[in-house]
């Protein structure tokens, strides 16, 4: 049983590697709210970042690696 689960896991992992995967919420859905501090300690929320035409929110791996 465990073997089967492992095999299924491997197949799932392989599929993830080779199939284009859809990242994050669907197009058209609302970005979840957040409240996070920036490099100077100031707090930003989704609302505060949205400008008249919207916003570009980038996720990156790390600033230290």
């Amino acid at each position: 049983m465990r073997k089967t689960a492992q095999a299924a896991g491997l197949i799932a992992a392989a599929t993830l590697l080779f199939a284009a995967r859809d990242y994050g919420p669907a197009i058209g859905s609302r970005m979840p709210d957040f409240s996070l501090r920036d490099q100077n300690g100031a707090t930003h929320t989704l609302q505060s970042l949205l400008k008249p035409k919207g916003a570009v929110i980038l996720f990156f791996r790390s600033a230290d690696w």
Partner: peptide, 21 residues
Amino acid sequence: FYGVPFPGTFILDAQGRIVAK
């Protein structure tokens, strides 16, 4: 490194809806 995201960018409209990824 546990906790890192898949890197990528969300494009939002003025209401905060995702218009592209």
